[in-house]
Amino acid sequence: MRPVTLKDVALRAGVSPKTVSRVINGELHVRPEVRAAVQRIVDELDYRPNAFARSLSSSRSYLLGLFLDDPGSGYAADLQLGALMRCRERSYHLVVEPLDITAPNWAGQIIDSIRALRLDGAILTPPICDSEALLDLLDSEGLAYVRISPRGDATRSGLIEMDDRSAAREMTEHLIGLGHRHIGFIKGDPAHSVSLKRFEGFTDAMTAAGLTLRPGDVREGDFSFRSGLRIGEEMLGGTAFPSAIFASNDDMALGVLITAMRLGIGVPDRLSVAGFDDAPTSRAAWPQITTIRQPKGEMAAGAVDILVDPSYRASPTSAHFRRLLDYELVDRLSTGPNTRDGSSQRS
């Protein structure tokens, strides 16, 4: 069978090929009822636009770039999947670009990529989304971009984020509600904007509950499993340790969990462990890790939606393109009531 063409869709929908093209390309000036009718025929016929032909017939490439500092992380994998699925729905394609802005030639590399690929837009993830030099470069190239969880000027571009501070506060309040008073905290990579926000949420809850931090209760990690193992050794290896530890992401929480088990500290009967992100590691661990479900896939999908919106390039600083998504506390088996009768001593 021959492939379905744009003309086939137009004939079936009773509209012109130009109207079908406008609907597929997300252009304005199409009546909602016409757009819905055309989209229904597109779905029924399973029409797939030819990306090469589309790019030749317009000034767009229908390619979006996802720029990441660590493409191998679980966080990055969830972002990639969310962006990829939404691009497929919007008849766009995704290019994943690793970017190390500490490299001496990073600017030349990204300019080469932008010009060679003719990207229509870029999704910037932390911490590179906070690089003023990068933002200035993209502005000079005229490339539209959307930032995920940035630290800097919220009015500079479209952005997608969640309230990391409130989420961390809620998790800390959850631990306090279980009777924990001696709670340790592991910070994330200081280069990431969310690291400070999560620590602030933790201290907000501790202060509100009238709880004081003891020396060594707060340690700095880097979001890696290895740092969770190291800090787990530091916090649990002595004669006294917290009844609960809240790590800024699930990879570090897993490191603490494994260290506790190696030291013979039962989880959650003698130590509660909480994480952040709802990464695959939080569900693969045993016991499964209590965590904050961050809508990473939805954040990336939302960034795609903004970039393909025809009105975005005309008003990228509009508040309409600054979106706050919800989170969810997922209560699993790695946390439980404090049963250590007020003592932090190992038996």
Rank of each mutant, 00 (worst) to 15 (best):
P98G: 02
F52G: 02
R22A: 10
P49G: 01
S16Q: 08
S61W: 00
D112L: 11
V15F: 02
Q80C: 13
D46W: 08
S16M: 05
A116N: 04
P126M: 13
R54K: 13
A77G: 09
A13P: 00
L45A: 12
S58C: 06
S57T: 05
Y92D: 04
L119F: 00
D112A: 14
M85E: 15
P126C: 07
V95G: 00
P98R: 07
D69G: 02
P126N: 10
P17A: 14
R90D: 08
L99W: 03
N105I: 14
L66V: 07
L11G: 00
L28P: 11
R54L: 00
A83H: 08
Y47I: 13
R90A: 13
I24E: 11
Q39H: 13
G26D: 04
F67D: 05
G72S: 08
L68V: 04
P104L: 06
A51R: 06
L45V: 07
A116G: 05
E97V: 06
Q109D: 15
S55V: 00
L99S: 08
P127G: 02
A13L: 07
T19Q: 09
W106H: 10
L68C: 07
R118Y: 03
G108Y: 08
E44P: 14
R40P: 09
V34H: 01
A122L: 08
G26R: 04
P17S: 11
P71S: 05
D112E: 15
A122K: 09
R35K: 14
G65R: 00
Y62I: 02
C129T: 07
G65I: 02
A13R: 04
A83P: 11
L134K: 03
A103M: 05
A77Y: 12
S131E: 02
W106N: 06
A83D: 10
L63F: 04
Y75E: 09
D69E: 11
R90C: 12
V20K: 11
V42T: 13
I24L: 15
S58M: 05
F67M: 15
F52T: 07
L45Y: 04
S57I: 00
L45G: 07
G121N: 02
R12L: 09
L28Q: 13
L56Q: 03
A77N: 11
R40T: 15
R12P: 01
V34C: 01
V23K: 13
D130S: 08
W106Y: 09
A37E: 13
V95P: 03
S131R: 02
